[in-house]
Amino acid sequence: MELPIKISKDSREPIYHQIVNQFKALIAGGHLTTGTPLPSIRALSKDLEISIITTRRAYQDLEVQGFIQTLQGKGTFVAELADDLKQEVKVSSVHKIMENAIETALNYDYTLEQVKDIFLEILHTYPKGKGDH
């Protein structure tokens, strides 16, 4: 199974951390539903061109945090997630992305007021319908 996971080797964020966060987002966002089988450590390592040491670490982290579970001899699956955990991931990942954006803007010498304007502008021109539920 091909997963929409992209790692950036240039990022300062450790690779296993990138994998963990992207899996969390996919699970919390409902792209990966409970019980979905995940690729084996070896197969994912091949797809991402990383060592199994890194992949195993990511899977272990995810398992400890309750996002996935490994059934002996059957493989690894998306775990049943409590709603509050889902919510927490959603909130924290969105927060994090926003924070990053603000940090970038500040690096370019924008003021917080200007950042707010830019944000509103983007929201305003955002294609209608895409964000509706």
């Binding site: 390592s45 091949k46 060592s51 040491i53 890194t54």
Partner: peptide, 23 residues
Amino acid sequence: IKKLSDYLFVLHNGKMLGHFEKE
């Protein structure tokens, strides 16, 4: 090397340069 290996064992003119984990 990219898709399969976990470790790289590097030799140069008979000498071992190292045994590295890929990342």
